[in-house]
């Protein structure tokens, strides 16, 4: 096989680039602790969410000191609860599922961006350090009202937090 020397140089550099890309992602996953959505949760019957103790009443629940869990339902064409209210300085684990079709759950302008598949529960944990407000939108086409599907995450100052119930 006949390969020009310059091509050999490029072949080596291209492999180097590929290995560097994979290493960067591995660095993010280990050293920086960026976790992927995975298969941790059992499947769930989307027709029977009303009987599920987490999703019958979509809500935010305190589970430890500064630790909260948010049970969120996506449906055509809204998120429940809306707003999702959490205190500043908290670590929140989201459990998001769908009542009907595939949706997206994107906290606008952030890295919290996951798919929501009926029958599955997407779970991920993030830290909210400061008070503020985030938009939430559905970024997977879900029907003819897709563009009106939005919600919000409201991070209130710790001392003003009343448990997230509206």
């Amino acid at each position: 096989m006949h390969i020009h020397n310059y091509e050999k140089i490029w072949l080596v550099l291209a492999m180097l680039l590929i290995v560097a890309f994979i290493s960067t992602v591995a660095y993010g996953a280990t050293a920086m602790g960026v976790d992927m959505i995975s298969d941790d949760e059992e499947t769930i019957n989307p027709d029977a969410l009303d009987e599920d103790q987490r999703f019958a009443e979509p809500r935010v629940e305190q589970v430890g000191e500064n630790e909260y869990e948010a049970y969120v339902v996506a449906l055509q064409f809204a998120f429940q609860p809306d707003p999702i209210e959490v205190p500043a300085g908290s670590t929140v684990t989201f459990y998001v599922t769908s009542r009907d079709v595939i949706h997206g759950f994107e906290v606008v302008g952030t890295n919290a961006n996951v798919m929501v598949v009926p029958g599955e529960v997407s779970t991920f944990t993030v830290e909210f350090n400061e008070a503020g407000e985030y938009g939430v939108l559905c970024n997977e086409y879900c029907g003819d009202g897709h563009h009106v599907m939005e919600g919000s995450v409201v991070v209130v100052p710790e001392e003003e937090y009343d448990g997230g119930d509206q």
């Binding site: 960067t24 993010g28 920086m32 602790g33 960026v34 976790d35 992927m36 959505i37 684990t93 906290v107 302008g109 952030t110 890295n111 919290a112 991920f124 944990t125 993030v126 830290e127 909210f128």
Partner: peptide, 15 residues
């Protein structure tokens, strides 16, 4: 893209 746009962005999924 990786270190500024991504890791520098708000809300990191940590679990």
């Amino acid at each position: 893209m990786y270190f500024i746009e991504f890791l520098g962005n708000d809300l990191t999924v940590i679990g």
